[in-house]
Amino acid sequence: MTDASVMSNYSLRDEIREYWSARAATFDTQVGHEIFSEEERHAWHELFLRHLGPGAGRRALDLASGTGVISHLLHDLGFDVTGLDWSEAMLNQARAKAKKRGSNIRFVMGDAERTLEKPESYDVLVTRHLVWTLVDPKAAFHEWHNLLKPGGRILVVDGDFVSDTFAKRLIRFIERLLPGSASNQHLPNAMREAHERILSQVYFSKGARAEEVAALLREAGFAHVTIDHDLKAIHRQQAKHLPWLKGFERATQHRYAVVAHKM
């Protein structure tokens, strides 16, 4: 890798960190980030139990933990949880939430692609909507494989939010007919521009498809890689708190969970 490409990667990483830091204050106000009903919480618990089993004191690492939403879901199930994020603004929110809820979750600053955590120190790794933002997923997946104990599991919850589909074209048509209904209206123009600029530069700039994520996990040494598209219970509950157009978009997107094992 050339010095120029390394500098370019660091510049992009800085922009990604600044983007999510700027969104930290309002992160928990948005459906799909925070949990807004016990029914949705239960649906997440069911997904984790299906693929990870009960916590029973096992060590879990929530990669790119943000304000700690996934960390708390894992904590609910009895995992000993560490949340890792590289945004101080996100970590401040996460620590305040943990203090308010009386949870003993450990939150640390770190780059999810280069965690500096001790090898073979976790039973479970979980990521939600992180993979699509990775600069170098191949290196990240090798790092994550090293973090797991033998027999450990990783659960990746993500989606292709980029590829153009009939549903997206229909939504754009409706948005032209109904001004003000655009699905990203909650973001100021500068934030939307930053999002688009970042997306154009990350590895999965054309969309993080489940099959490609699974293939890269196998390449990193993971085994028994399984794709689960059945997230309807979660999306159904989220849709209850969304405008109908946004709910339709979420229901038609390529969203998935991928679980993989370290042998």
Results as ranks from 00 to 15, higher is better:
residue 229 H to P: 13
residue 42 H to T: 14
residue 98 A to R: 03
residue 172 R to M: 10
residue 5 S to N: 11
residue 150 P to R: 12
residue 77 L to W: 12
residue 8 S to C: 02
residue 107 F to T: 13
residue 158 D to K: 11
residue 129 H to Q: 11
residue 237 Q to V: 03
residue 149 K to C: 04
residue 111 D to M: 05
residue 56 A to I: 07
residue 95 R to S: 11
residue 226 T to A: 01
residue 213 V to T: 02
residue 254 H to F: 03
residue 35 I to S: 01
residue 187 L to S: 08
residue 94 A to N: 14
residue 52 L to Q: 06
residue 47 L to A: 12
residue 136 D to A: 05
residue 169 R to K: 12
residue 48 F to N: 03
residue 162 V to Y: 08
residue 218 R to P: 00
residue 105 I to D: 14
residue 206 K to P: 11
residue 56 A to Q: 15
residue 245 L to K: 06
residue 141 F to H: 08
residue 44 W to V: 11
residue 205 S to E: 08
residue 119 P to R: 04
residue 182 A to N: 08
residue 194 A to C: 09
residue 250 R to M: 06
residue 84 L to V: 11
residue 239 A to D: 14
residue 206 K to T: 13
residue 32 G to P: 01
residue 64 A to F: 07
residue 177 L to A: 13
residue 63 L to A: 10
residue 22 A to R: 11
residue 223 A to G: 08
residue 255 R to N: 07
residue 75 H to T: 12
residue 30 Q to N: 08
residue 70 I to L: 07
residue 249 E to W: 12
residue 160 D to G: 10
residue 172 R to V: 10
residue 117 E to G: 04
residue 23 R to D: 11
residue 49 L to V: 09
residue 197 R to V: 04
residue 175 E to P: 00
residue 44 W to F: 12
residue 26 T to P: 06
residue 221 G to K: 12
residue 229 H to E: 14
residue 3 D to S: 12
residue 12 L to P: 01
residue 122 Y to K: 11
residue 22 A to Y: 09
residue 231 L to W: 07
residue 24 A to E: 05
residue 22 A to G: 11
residue 221 G to T: 15
residue 77 L to A: 05
residue 121 S to K: 10
residue 23 R to P: 07
residue 177 L to W: 14
residue 226 T to W: 00
residue 72 H to C: 06
residue 51 H to D: 01
residue 96 A to G: 06
residue 111 D to L: 03
residue 111 D to R: 03
residue 165 T to G: 05
residue 57 G to L: 04
residue 185 Q to H: 06
residue 43 A to M: 09
residue 52 L to D: 02
residue 104 N to G: 10
residue 174 I to N: 02
residue 213 V to K: 00
residue 67 T to H: 01
residue 171 I to W: 02
residue 15 E to C: 01
residue 169 R to A: 06
residue 171 I to R: 03
residue 202 V to S: 04
residue 5 S to F: 06
residue 180 G to V: 14
residue 200 S to M: 00
residue 204 F to I: 02
residue 13 R to V: 05
residue 199 L to G: 15
residue 209 R to Y: 02
residue 193 E to K: 15
residue 74 L to K: 02
residue 165 T to A: 06
residue 232 K to V: 05
residue 96 A to P: 09
residue 46 E to G: 07
residue 204 F to N: 00
residue 79 F to K: 01
residue 55 G to H: 10
residue 177 L to F: 06
residue 195 H to F: 11
residue 74 L to Y: 04
residue 159 G to Q: 13
residue 81 V to I: 00
residue 260 A to C: 01
residue 91 L to C: 07
residue 226 T to R: 07
residue 147 L to V: 14
residue 179 P to L: 08
residue 206 K to H: 11
residue 261 H to A: 05
residue 72 H to N: 09
residue 246 K to S: 09
residue 125 L to H: 03
residue 222 F to W: 08
residue 143 E to Y: 07
residue 118 K to E: 15
residue 162 V to H: 08
residue 45 H to I: 11
residue 145 H to K: 01
residue 59 R to V: 00
residue 125 L to Q: 02
residue 227 I to H: 05
residue 183 S to C: 09
residue 172 R to N: 12
residue 212 E to R: 02
residue 120 E to T: 10
residue 40 E to H: 11
residue 126 V to F: 01
residue 141 F to G: 04
residue 182 A to L: 01
residue 181 S to A: 07
residue 133 T to I: 13
residue 59 R to S: 02
residue 129 H to D: 12
residue 83 G to K: 02
residue 261 H to M: 06
residue 103 S to F: 13
residue 252 T to E: 14
residue 125 L to D: 00
